[in-house]
Amino acid sequence: MGLNRDAQGEAGAAVTPAGAHGGHRGGLFGGGGPTFLTTKLDFIINWGRRNSLWPMPFGTACCAIEMMASAASDYDLARFGMERMSFSPRQADVLICAGRVPYKLAPVLRRIWDQMSQPKWAVSMGACASSGGIFDAYSMVQGIDTIIPVDVYIPGCPPRPEALIYGLMMIQEKIRGETMDRRVELRAEDPYAAGAPRATPEEIAGLTGPFGNSTHQNQGSGRGPKDRVHRPADRIV
């Protein structure tokens, strides 16, 4: 499980030196760096944010069932201030993409992400959402990070509820490190990028190539040739 987001490098650092970032450089006292007041304010805002995260459950397959189990009485997500599953993206803070995402569903996922208002975070739950999982086939998105930026990847097929809760706690941990001083940098969003893939074609080619077992998916059965391998070069581009 790891924290990753292209736009921000040093999550977890509560105090960052002034001048290291472009964009916003305000401060109540002093010339542009974080001050006692702003860091206290950061603390209060982050405390409020991280304890009232409203998840937007984008559940598609098996992982959605584990997400439901997390919300039910045995695991009880409400302990983390997340009992309000917000099925409307406008009122949600964290997108939990639970389950496999085919290309047919990709524009839906992107639109829901675009509709969520800042501040927002994304959790990729399960192997299929993170990398395509065992479905390295014609209809499946090979990792939702080609479509939307992802903050936390949760491995597992499907991840246990504990893993989901741990992933959400990592989001909380990430929020704890955010500061107003980097507001523009963290929360900037290009309105013209709405609906477009997050990754460039080169990045997608790098992210989605066959790896591990899927390179050994040989064609066909029986008396046909047994060892035909499809490599990216086989495909018509």
């Binding site: 569903l105 839906v108 040989n218 059965s221």
Partner: peptide, 15 residues
């Protein structure tokens, strides 16, 4: 429908 089409049957032919 088809928003969760994961090509099971095609994958099965390779296994």
């Amino acid at each position: 429908i088809g928003y969760l089409h994961s090509s099971f049957e095609k994958l099965g032919e390779y296994r």
